[in-house]
Computed example of a mutant assay.
Amino acid sequence: MVFTVRVSLALGPAPVPSSATGLVTAEAVALDLRPARLGSRAIALMIDILVQAALAGVLMLVAGVIMAVLPEKLVDDALSATVWRVLVVAVLLAYPTIVETRTNGRSVGKTAMGLRVIREDGGPIGVRQAFTRALIGFTLEWPGLLLPFLTWAGSLAIMIGSDRGRRLGDLAAGTLVVHERRPLPFRYVPGMPADLAPWAAAADLSAVDDELAGAVRHYLSRAQELAEPASSALLQSLAVEVGARVTPPPPSGTPPWLFLCAVLAERRRRYAAQLAAGRLVTERLLPGFGRRPLYPSIPPVRRAAPSS
């Protein structure tokens, strides 16, 4: 019976999500993805810049050691300029291309911010898309070697004006940046029905385990999203299963919905009471354990001994 409840809850009808990015795959499936905007992308870029700066420092250190070992007649201004250009290309062009290709569009900054680069059709990017994005950024956006201030302003205006937050590199490569992490919507769970509070306080709920209580909580939080008759069938299944584990049974004529609300609210109340009692015992045995002082203690200042 538990298996049936879980399957019904997982496969219950839900509202069809709308694609925030407007992406539709070749199988005519709308992708419910949230495009990344200027704020999250700017923070990801700052993290990537710090990583690239660290990488550039390491490469410059290695290059300096190698050039120090070479004979003096081989080290001249032309070699130094060539090494510098190679380092710039490696850090600003090769590094982002390799990283985004190997990680399917997740640089260090994007990973920290929960972002990913994908193609316009929703697929993972390849070497061509990653190289195009890095090349446009290298020449026009960041650091933008061609007319830096003018191209920066133009790139920023394009990103702000884009309905999907795309920059010049995304437009040229046919990509966009989306959020991998989706915010969990707030779901209201009903509280204790007043008429059932005395019965619930005396009922034995020890047989209602966390897994079954989680299924009840999930149903109560999204019952309004389920269509009939699936919602009523699932409600009856949960009420029968929970009723078989609760003694004594609820008062005669109690609606299944109120019965489940009472059981869930009482479990929550008992858990909070147990947690509070445990904290009291801990405080009694180990005062201050697990708490950080609001203000750090300052050692007393000793008065200097009078000089003779």
Rank of each mutant, 00 (worst) to 15 (best):
L45K: 02
L45F: 12
L45H: 03
L45S: 10
M46N: 05
M46Y: 01
I47E: 00
I47G: 03
I47L: 13
D48Y: 06
I49Q: 07
L50T: 14
L50N: 04
V51A: 13
V51G: 09
V51W: 05
Q52R: 13
Q52V: 06
A53P: 08
A54N: 05
A54F: 14
A54H: 05
A54R: 07
A54Y: 06
L55A: 15
L55G: 14
L55D: 01
L55E: 06
A56H: 09
G57V: 04
G57Y: 11
G57W: 12
G57H: 08
G57K: 04
V58F: 14
V58Y: 10
V58P: 04
L59F: 13
L59Y: 09
L59R: 10
L59A: 14
M60W: 12
M60G: 12
L61T: 11
L61R: 13
L61S: 15
L61F: 12
V62E: 11
V62Q: 09
V62N: 03
V62M: 13
A63C: 10
A63I: 13
A63V: 15
V65T: 07
V65N: 12
V65A: 15
I66K: 02
I66D: 02
I66T: 13
M67I: 06
M67V: 10
M67F: 00
M67Q: 09
M67H: 00
M67L: 15
A68N: 13
A68T: 11
V69F: 12
V69A: 14
V69Y: 07
V69C: 03
L70T: 02
L70G: 01
P71H: 05
P71F: 02
E72K: 09
E72V: 07
E72L: 07
K73R: 12
K73A: 10
K73M: 02
L74V: 14
L74R: 05
V75I: 14
V75Q: 03
V75Y: 00
D76R: 02
D76N: 13
D77N: 12
D77I: 07
A78V: 10
A78E: 07
A78W: 06
A78H: 08
L79H: 03
S80E: 05
S80L: 11
A81N: 10
A81D: 04
T82D: 01
T82N: 02
T82F: 07
V83I: 15
V83R: 01
W84S: 14
W84A: 12
R85S: 13
R85M: 13
R85A: 15
R85G: 12
V86E: 00
L87D: 10
L87F: 05
L87C: 07
V88T: 09
V88R: 04
V89N: 02
V89A: 13
A90W: 01
A90L: 14
V91I: 15
L92E: 08
L92W: 15
L92A: 11
L92N: 05
L92R: 02
L92S: 04
A94S: 02
A94E: 04
A94K: 01
A94R: 00
Y95T: 07
Y95F: 15
Y95C: 08
Y95M: 12
Y95L: 09
P96T: 05
P96F: 03
P96S: 04
P96H: 06
T97E: 08
T97H: 06
T97F: 12
I98Q: 00
I98T: 06
V99K: 06
V99R: 06
V99E: 08
